[in-house]
Amino acid sequence: MHYRENAWLRHQQARWLWPDAHRWVRPDAARFLAPGGGVADAFPALSRKYNPNQPRVPAGNSDGGQWTDGGSGSAAPIGDIGFGNLSELNDFSDLFQITPSETDFDGVQLAGDPPEGIGHNQGPPLDEPPEIPQQRPETRSERMDFVRSAVAWIGRIGRYSPAAGIFLGALDQAEDLKALTDAIKTANDPPRSLDELQEAVGSTSKDGYHDHHIAEQTAARNAGDPESLIQSRDNLVRIPILKHIDITSYYATRIEQEDGSMLSPRESLKGKDFETRRQFGLEMLRRYGVLK
C-alpha cells in the first residue's frame, strides 16, 4: 500500500483515540508487562506522552507511585479529584484506572486534527461516516450506494474501531435496514481457509452470508453435471453477501480479449469440465479476498 494511504489510514484510526489516553495508564503499568518490556512499547500510540522519568509520589504515601508535576515542594499527586477512598477498586483496575493521573494539557489536540501531510490538499479529505437513511432506500441503486459507502468507510477506519462500533450500533437500531446492515457487517471479513468457509455450510443460515457454489450452479446444470457434484461439500462455501454479489457479477462482466473482442468469464468457461470451473471459482474467491 502507498505510504500516504498508510499514513491516512493510521490517522483515521487515531482520530477516534482519546488525545489524552495516556492519562488513563497506571503509573506502575510496567509491572504488568513482560520483563524488559516498556509501557511505551506496549502502547506505541501513547509513547508521545509517556515519560518514564517523570517524578512520582514517593512510596509510603497513600498516593505512592502516582505521577507528579515535580514542580512543587510537596509531592502532591495530580488528578486526585476527591472521590475519597477508592482502594477497593484496585483489584479490578489492572492496567487502567478510572481517574486520570494527570490533568495538564500541554497543547490541545482535537480528535479531528489531521497529522502533518494530510489534508490541506496534501492527502484525502477527512472522513465522516455515511448518513444513515431514515428508512430502507426504495431503489436497488440507492441501497447499493449506501452499502458500498458504509463498507468503504469501515474499511478505511478499521472494522473494530470505536467509530465503526458506534456506526454499526446505530444501524442495528434501524429494523428497516437489517438486511443492509448484515451485508455491511460481513463485507470486511478477513480471508479464511477453505475449511473455515465450508464449515458453516449446511447449518442454519446466518445473517449477512450466502452459501456460494464455487463452480457456478447454473453453468454446471447446463453442462449436465450431476446434482450430487454441484451440491457437494467440496463445491459450497459460506461467504459474505456482498462478495457473493461481486463474484457473481464478475462472471457476467465482459472483458476485452487479446483479439479486441469482449468475452465474460462465464463465456470463457463454457465447455470446460467441472473441476476446471471449480478451480477457476477458487481463484476468484482468492482474488476477491474471501479465501486465504
Binding site: 468503504a152 474499511g155 463485507a187 456482498l242 462478495k243 461481486d246 463474484i247 457479477s249 464478475y250 462482466t253 472483458i255 468469464p265 470463457s268 468457461l269 470446460k272 476446471t276 478451480q279 477457476f280 481463484e283 476468484m284 482468492r286 482474488r287 476477491y288 479476498g289
Partner: peptide, 23 residues
C-alpha cells in the same frame, strides 16, 4: 477496495496468472 480490486486481480490472473493456467 472491492469490487474493483477483485476485477483487477482477476484480470491479471487471466492475463498470465493462475486463471490463465486453469483455462
Amino acid at each position: 477496495v472491492f469490487p474493483l480490486a477483485g476485477h483487477a486481480g482477476m484480470y491479471l490472473s487471466m492475463h498470465d496468472g493462475e486463471a490463465a493456467r486453469i483455462l
